[in-house]
Every structure is written in C-alpha cells, then in structure tokens.
Design a protein around this nucleic acid. Sequence first.
DNA 1: TGCAGATCCTGAACACCGTTCAGTAGTTTT
DNA 2: AAAACTACTGAACGGTGTTCAGGATCTGCA
Lengths: 203, 203
Amino acid sequence: MGLKERKERNREDMRARILKSAHKIFVDKGFDDVSIRNIAVDIEYSPATIYLYFKDKNEIFYALHTEAFKVFNEYVADLVSIKDPFKRLVALGRKFMAFARKYPKYYDIMFITMAPMDCHLNKDKWPEGTKAHAFLEGLVAECKAQGRFKKLDAQILSLTIWSFVHGLCSLELQNRLRIYPDELQPTITRDSFEQFVKVLGNL
Amino acid sequence: MGLKERKERNREDMRARILKSAHKIFVDKGFDDVSIRNIAVDIEYSPATIYLYFKDKNEIFYALHTEAFKVFNEYVADLVSIKDPFKRLVALGRKFMAFARKYPKYYDIMFITMAPMDCHLNKDKWPEGTKAHAFLEGLVAECKAQGRFKKLDAQILSLTIWSFVHGLCSLELQNRLRIYPDELQPTITRDSFEQFVKVLGNL
DNA sequence: TGCAGATCCTGAACACCGTTCAGTAGTTTT
DNA sequence: AAAACTACTGAACGGTGTTCAGGATCTGCA
C-alpha cells in the first residue's frame, strides 16, 4: 500500500512549501517579517494550517538555520583546492568574512540570533556548527603537523581564531564599528584581519 | 519665574520614573518583557502617557543602553590601580569577560542587540562606545611606548583585541560554544583567553 | 468669583503578532 | 447510505507598539 507513503510525501511537500515561503520572506524582507501570518498569506492557506505541519515558529526558524549552514558549506567548498593548510586556513577566514557580508541575515541566524531554538543546547542538536568547527580544527591540526603553532593547543587555537573572526564580523554587522572615522571604515576590518594573520604566520 | 523650571523638573522626574521602571523590568524579567504596557502598569499610568515623555520604545532602550555603559565603566574603574599597562590591558580583558557573564542582558544591549537604535550610526551618537574604545586604544598605546607590539599598529591591534574578546563572549552568551564536550565547557573560554594573552605577551 | 486656556492624562482603537480549538467541508472506508 | 477519517479554517485569546479625540484638572486673568 503506497497510500501511506503518498500521504507522507504530500506532508513533506507542504512542509517544503512552507519553508520555501519562509525563506523567500526571510531573504526579501528580513528576519522580522517572517511571521506565521505572512507565510500563510504567501502560501495561500490560513495561519492555523501551518501548525499542522510545524510545531511552532521556532521549528521553522531551525530549518532556516540549517539551510544557512548548507549555503555556507557550499560557499567555502572550493577551499579544498588550496594545498597549503595555512593558506587554506587564511582563505577560510577571508571567506567567512565575505560570507557574513554577503549574507548578513544568514550570518545572523547562524551565529547571533538567540531565538529560543533548542538546537544550541548541545553538540548533537547542532550538527552543522559541530561540523563547521571540526573543519576549522582539522585545518589548525594540519598546520601543526607542518610545524606551525608549536606551542599552542590546536583545539584552543581554533576557538581563538573563530572568536576573533566572528567578533570582527559581529561588531561590523551590529554597526558597532561606526565609532571609527569614515575614512577608516572600508579598511579597518581587513587591516585587523591581516594583522591577525601576520601574527599567526609567525607562530 | 521658576514655574517653567518646575514644569521642566516634573518632566524630568517622569522620564526618570519611566526609565527606572524599564530598568527594573529589564533586570528582573529580561529584555523581552520590557514593553510599553508593562512599564505603564508598573508606574501606574496608561501606556499612552509614556508617549508624552518618550518618542518611542527605542528612545527608552537607548537610555538603558547608555546606563549599561555607565555600569560597565564603574565595573572596570578599579583597573587604574594597576601600574603596568600590559597587566592592566590583560586585567581589562578579564573584567570585560566577567562583566559579560555577570550582566549578560547589559552586554547584549551594549554590543549585540540591533534594535534600530540610531545611536550606532556614527561616533557622535555613541559616545560611550567611543569612550570605552578610546580607553582600550590608550592602553595599547601605552604598551607600545613600553616597547611592546613593536611591529603592530595600536589602533588596529585594539580592534583585534576587542574583536577577539567580544567574539568569545558573544559565542558563549549566544550558546554557540555548546558544541564542545561538557567537560571542556567550564575552561574553554578561559583557556582561549589565556592563550591569546600568552601570544600577545611575546609580541 | 468665574471663565478661558493650557496642561496632563486616558480609553479606545488600529494593525500587527503567535497560538489554539471547535467545527466544517470533502474524501474514503465500511 | 452511513460512518470515519482527513485537511483545512474562522474566530478567538492574549499579547505587542502606537495614535488620537476627548476628558479632567489646574493656572492666570478679568
């Protein structure tokens, strides 16, 4: 009986439709405009219907959040072509910053928004974060294997690097770098990053 | 005619009462519970009255935001007793992190929340941020004067330090460090900070 | 003292939000 | 044909920020 399966597929279709709509509104209008009611208008169903396919708004946000990581992974996929691990590490940092600027809304939902998604409560519930961070740690470990970062622990250094780059992106996206004069604005973030890389290169 | 002045003082009294109430709710119940209506209940006026003293909710948030910086400044005031500038710099970092943990809601409104406050649009509108950052820059400059950080620009390095420490705090507060195993949780942030300091100490 | 005018405040409304639930059509099974 | 099941919705509940006409009280002047 392929009946249950068809029912199941219809169900998945509807979920996909809702998510697609949520994604459209998220990208077009921004985070705050992704409301159950707006999604309902877009898919031409009543708001109540959405609750037949998703527990609540957070479940929809969680899906967007997962999607954002997929986009990120694709965005940095071409790094594998870089042979030297240190160069790859630096390129990852650059790509990370470029991603934050290109998809600020994605970045927000990935690393900033607190929206009570239970997905950040432990590593099992946030596989994308775990995976992305494992990639970074692997890179740092490779660099160590080449004789770099001799006196530093790879895991800790990974966190240090992540924190720095995220801090930079976060401050920029949250408009906290406007304290700098206008003429410095375009370069200051890049300068800080390059300085960090320079120091890192000598360790 | 002290009449106009008395009117003016009453006006300021009311503004203060509203802010005090907002602050109370903010600390007791959290950011999301600071609503015009909740403030109105607390001060025993109608919601509409609040709009006679503040343009909108953002103006109230801006006041909270300013207050948070005051609390922060007091929190780090005792650093002046530390003679050695590098030690003072390190102590500032530690205090910064301690502040973020002790007053996460303040930290949020200071460095994370985007709420369309126009105060982050340029340096003049965010004097507290400018001042706090000038303090950091001065410290780094002092270190340079002592022969440290020879090859690095003080202004850029200040941003690098700020970014790193903020990144660490931000990731922790937004629950993004839960990807680490439980046994690492208590130490990982401190370890990263200490590693950063160690590297900084050798520059 | 009485009355105009300024001052301060509010009830009610508008347009949103997430969420729930009784109930209604339409299809399928018996 | 009747019963059961499915997919859906209208209307409501309680919440949000904000606006505005109008009511109450207080002030200064005739």
